[in-house]
Nucleic acid binder design. Structure first.
Lengths: 229, 229
DNA sequence: CTCTGGAATTGATTCAGATCAATTTTTTTG
DNA sequence: CAAAAAAATTGATCTGAATCAATTCCAGAG
């Protein structure tokens, strides 16, 4: 049972090339847990005792300060989250809560650090993952500082559409209020931003977004490889 | 001559614990160059052929999009910059220009990757550095999304003051226009933000900042370990 | 030392986005 | 299925911050 679930994460880039021994010592102390919706898994400021991996469901990473809250990212299966804190043994900078029901694997971070020291392939994979996440953070900062909220939405939609195979219509993967927070705006303004994109061929019906011609929207959004990947 | 300069970087956390052999192969292909002020060292989008290290002077990391520009960070001696791009062989996401006159060491990034594969200590140091930078990016995003511009300034000043040994008065390390861009505001609004902090005991004379009582300012700024370090 | 151009400041105005308030729509639940 | 709760939308208003414009300040060049 546990073994089956554990096997699911073997294919993760993080573990793909490591030795069986290394994988065994990584997962020996692992927990698998199911969580109900809207459960706070992690609270910012706590010690990073575990590396978390989402097997099913999705997890929202968010941060708070002074009674304000913002969505930092959403994590989908199968991927790990809060690797940096675990690897350098520092407190989490973000909190995490489940969106729907979730199955999560938790690897004790001391095991992660131990295997990092002994398995070269794992070390390489961790570096690749960290460098990748770092660059995602830089992209995000550029997005926030260089673009208006409507431009951020437009580029987000273009990225979504591409992820979904360039179909002219696709579903938003999460609630609009959460999208708004992720994009750094209020739900009210997200609604208005969608309206502002109508002239560029964007139509919304509930969770479904239609984009007629990508050209019009792209001319407005000016997507950039160095921000949007 | 070159050997002397190279020795200066040996003490960097990145190289402190690596073997002499590893250090030798890292620096064998190194260049040392002096640059005049306001020289663009790196342009975003280019291949990351070198890991750069500032020996003297300071370097501004900035990004542009659609005729807009923002300061992402300022790098002081002795430290490296744009490690992530070099280690995973990806294009730079940021541009870099010298502030004053600068001396820069450039290590071919293929050497960095090669030594990473052979020297465990170096791998460990790189991971620590990357994780650290990643977390700095998260902090920065929280700062931008959760705080107003005046709050960002207030917390910046508190951090500065602490860095300078908690003296009631210290010098800003760079021009106000650059500080404004770093904090995500215009020079005009930085000026107004300084005025808005007067009631909390902040006084500015040119580059010099006086902070009478930290308590008043801190009550307004609400500095947070998970944002301000 | 004066001249000059960039930096900084200050004021007036505009604009993007937040907040407040009121519905409408959708989802959840009993 | 109906009731209740949550999410989304729309309109009105307010506010933080950008822009535009005009000095003032200051550092570096001659």
């Amino acid at each position: 049972m546990i073994a089956e679930r554990i096997a699911e994460i073997r294919k993760l880039a993080l573990f793909a090339d490591i030795s069986d021994d290394a994988f065994k010592s990584l997962t020996r102390g692992a927990y698998i847990q199911n969580f109900p919706p809207h459960t706070e898994l992690i609270t910012q400021g706590e010690a990073a005792d575990f590396l978390h991996i989402v097997i099913s469901g999705s997890v929202e990473l968010f941060s708070t300060w002074n009674d304000r809250e913002t969505t930092m990212a959403t994590v989908w299966p199968v991927s790990s989250f809060i690797l940096a804190a675990a690897i350098i043994d520092q407190p989490y900078l973000m909190s995490a809560r489940t969106s729907g029901k979730c199955r999560i694997i938790m690897l004790p971070s001391q095991d992660v650090r131990a295997v990092f020291d002994t398995d070269t392939e794992f070390a390489r994979a961790i570096v690749a993952e960290l460098a990748d996440h770092y660059r995602a953070g830089i992209r995000n900062t550029k997005n926030l500082k260089l673009r208006t909220s409507t431009e951020r939405l437009a580029n987000y939609l273009i990225r979504c559409r591409r992820t979904k195979g360039d179909h002219p219509s696709f579903e938003l993967r999460y609630e609009k209020r959460r999208l708004a927070s992720y994009l750094g705006m209020t739900p009210e303004n997200l609604s208005r931003a969608f309206n502002a994109l109508k002239p560029y061929g964007v139509r919304v019906e509930g969770q479904r977004v239609h984009i007629q011609t990508l050209d019009d929207l792209a001319a407005f959004a000016k997507p950039d490889r160095l921000i949007d990947g």
